[in-house]
């Protein structure tokens, strides 16, 4: 199908982009890689009046270290994230999950920032950024601000970003040395995750010292599994991990769709959390 008509600008700086967004008001949208937005527009499920194409703004791609914090440009493509040596070392979970996003052609266009700003709870990266306890840096007419990931995802396809704010970078405290695993459960390779579990584990003397669990598609936003995380601390063997994983669905409100019911999603969250944490901890 055919997207509805819109105006188009291609700013060369972040400032120009922010000005364009401010001028466009509620009906302006950022066009990053377009891999979520353009299909929605083709199905006429989104009708932006203005697209602000941020694809040519220099400095929004790639990564760097600031102390112990990995900084990834919001316009870095999934393909770029996957092949980034700093990401692989300091945010291995992000690289692992990014490898499961869509398919190679989509990963060439789709961007980390675009995926986060789209805030689809069924997408893989939002839960990963939650588990990594990342921060999102936005620039708007009122300047630059940093939003913790836990405050960023506010509802289904909703974020803390104002319409005139542009996501410019993602800051991730290094998890170099942590074990990680992204467990994605899907009916076919192209489908969205029915449930996904992002696990990060710090081990100490063979036991789990600290575990973080991010959940994909278990509610209207990506979620953490605090009850399971708490129960996982100190787990020293597979049985203990599986027991703790039984808490993974606490406080979640998964949806029903053609692939799964809420009860089944809750069940999967428990099973997959066990598997993800065991894999992350190297205890499988």
């Amino acid at each position: 199908m055919i997207p509805p008509a819109f105006d188009y600008v291609r700013p060369h700086t972040v400032e120009e982009a922010v000005r364009a967004l401010a001028d466009g008001g509620e009906d302006a949208k950022v066009l990053a890689g377009g891999q979520s937005l353009l299909p929605l527009m083709r199905l006429r499920m989104a009708f932006p009046q203005l697209l602000v194409d941020t694809g040519r703004i220099p400095g929004l791609r790639g990564s760097r270290m600031e102390g112990d914090t990995l900084v990834v440009g919001a316009m870095t493509t999934h393909h770029g994230v996957l092949h980034d040596a700093l990401v692989r070392r300091h945010a291995g979970l992000l690289a692992a999950a990014t490898a499961t996003v869509a398919d190679p052609a989509v990963r060439h266009r789709g961007t980390l920032g675009g995926s986060l700003a789209h805030a689809d709870p069924a997408a893989d990266l939002p839960a990963v950024i939650l588990a990594l306890e990342g921060e999102l840096v936005a620039v708007g007419p009122r300047g630059r601000r940093t939003i913790p990931a836990r405050e960023f995802f506010t509802d289904y396809l909703e974020t803390a970003l104002a319409p005139d704010e542009l996501l410019v970078e993602v800051r991730l405290p290094s998890t170099d040395g942590w074990g990680f695993h992204y467990e994605k459960f899907q009916r076919v390779a192209q489908a969205y995750a029915i449930v996904g579990v992002a696990a990060l584990v710090r081990r100490d003397n063979g036991s789990i010292a600290e575990a973080r669990v991010g959940l994909t598609n278990m509610g209207s936003t990506p979620l953490r599994a605090p009850a399971a995380e708490e129960a996982l601390a100190g787990a020293g063997d597979a049985a203990a991990v599986k027991r703790a994983a039984g808490e993974a669905a606490e406080g979640t409100r998964p949806s029903r769709d053609t692939s799964a019911s809420p009860e089944y999603r809750a069940h999967l969250a428990r099973v997959l959390t066990g598997r993800a944490v065991l894999a992350a901890a190297g205890m499988g």
């Binding site: 299909p39 199905l43 076919v188 390779a189 192209q190 489908a191 969205y192 053609t258």
Partner: peptide, 16 residues
């Protein structure tokens, strides 16, 4: 029709 697009109607790929 709930499985109204190719994203919802699961045609298997080479992986599947």
């Amino acid at each position: 029709l709930l499985s109204g697009t190719m994203a919802d109607y699961l045609v298997p790929s080479a992986v599947d």
